[in-house]
Computed example of a mutant assay.
Amino acid sequence: MSFVLGVISALTAPFLVVVGFIVWDNHWNGTAFALNMYNCTMTAIGFLIVSIVVRQFVLEPSTEEEIFTSQKIGGLMVSSTIGILIGDWVWLEGLRLLGSRKIIVVDSLKPFLAVFLGEVFLDERLERGAIIGLILTVLGVALVGLEKEDHNIETETTIECESVGAAGTEVFNEHTVLIEKDNNEQSSTVVVDSYAQQRKNRGKQSTKEFIYGLVMAILNVVLHTFGVLLTKKYGVGMTTFEINLIRFGFAGICMALLSFSLWSISNISSTTTSTTTTMTTMMTTMTMKPAWYLLPDASYSTWRRISFGVVFVSFLQPALTNYAMFQISLALLLTLESIGPLYSLPLSYILQGNRPTFRACIGAILAVIGIIVLSFKGITES
């Protein structure tokens, strides 16, 4: 029963991410760092409250060995560092240089790396049939993801969570979303033109830039997988809310301290300049977006919508994912974690009227077959 609940949780988590992106659409006007910082700090507060309530009123007092040891907390902090603070940054760097098509291909290595790491460090050995299901799922998701990008260009429309361009960008990894849009309203055609131009520019990039982007993408595969591995290794005995409290809280504190430090340095530097220069800088700043390390100015209604999206993307999704982590194998978890593009097919059709192509349908069928096989064969061998 716990295995079934783990699979259901792992399948539900990507759907919540897609819903959260839809809520975020057209509302965030800051940088990826600022959104990541806001996500981590806000969700850490939520996880703190829920953790106290669950530990005090739901769970029975534990008579086992101490749960919150310095070794476990330190391991989760390391997991937060390599999976959130560093892993998200290198992923965004790879995306910037390679584009989402190549990133999808590189990200497909995560489940296979998880098979190896799970067997070496966690003694998890998947049945042979599960490997076939894993391959089918990864192949199907890749077909859907690659087809979605081509379809966006051909029909001159943009789809939430799948578009990458100068005027509008929405990408995610674990809990990070990059949404950068121009202040002025722009049509879908302008967004797609910018996207097409960016892809054309990528075709002219140097070999050095391509290698750098590829290294960043591969490094993210390693960091993200190891981050999940460390979470599963050192989070034993804790609730999913307590695990997320430590990981997101640590990342949020680190980013908040960095933001405050840079803001302080910026203010100190401005006070050393002349009054004329300071006034000029202030007037220029008023007409520009805030620095990458600061939260953007937004109305109350905008922050309310953004916070509502945070509940889906950074609270419910990690809570379900970390619960599933201790019910199913590492490889199965990372495979099911990658099926977000499947959910975007029906949602984009319902909300925007975009019909899926034949290749995307074939990819969805392969992925569903793979998920079914994994669900029956994904239990690890003893």
Results as ranks from 00 to 15, higher is better:
V4G: 12
A10V: 00
T12D: 13
G20R: 04
T31S: 04
T31V: 14
T31P: 03
F33C: 12
A34N: 12
L35S: 02
N36E: 08
T41A: 10
T43R: 02
I45Y: 07
G46V: 06
V50T: 04
V50F: 13
S51V: 04
V53T: 04
V54F: 11
Q56E: 14
F57K: 06
P61E: 02
K72C: 12
V78N: 03
S80M: 02
T81P: 02
G83T: 08
I84V: 14
L85R: 05
L92W: 07
L97H: 11
G99I: 15
G99C: 09
G99A: 15
G99R: 05
S100Q: 05
R101N: 05
V106L: 10
A114S: 02
A114Q: 05
L117K: 03
D123P: 11
R125E: 08
G129K: 13
L136C: 07
L143V: 08
V144P: 02
V144R: 03
E147G: 15
E147Y: 07
H151A: 07
E154P: 02
E154D: 14
E156S: 10
C161H: 05
S163Q: 14
A167R: 11
T169G: 08
E170F: 09
V171L: 03
E174M: 07
K181T: 12
D182M: 08
Q186P: 03
Q186C: 07
S188K: 01
Q197T: 04
R199N: 13
R202Y: 15
T207W: 01
I211P: 01
Y212W: 09
M216Y: 08
L219M: 15
N220M: 14
H224V: 01
T225P: 10
T225M: 13
F226Y: 07
Y234S: 06
G235T: 12
G235M: 05
T240V: 12
E242C: 09
F248R: 04
G249V: 09
F250W: 11
I253R: 01
L257W: 00
S259K: 00
L262H: 08
S264V: 07
S264I: 10
T273M: 12
S274N: 13
S274V: 13
T276H: 01
T276P: 00
M279Q: 06
T281S: 05
T284S: 11
T284C: 12
K289I: 03
P290S: 00
W292N: 08
D297V: 14
Y300D: 14
R305W: 06
G309P: 15
V311D: 01
V311P: 05
V313Y: 10
S314V: 08
P318Q: 04
A319C: 14
A319Y: 03
N322R: 09
N322P: 05
M325F: 01
E337D: 14
S338L: 02
S338M: 00
I339S: 05
S344R: 13
P346G: 01
G353E: 03
R355L: 00
T357L: 09
I362T: 15
G363D: 06
L366R: 06
V368D: 06
G370Y: 12
I371G: 03
F376T: 11
K377E: 15
I379L: 07
T380N: 13
S382N: 12
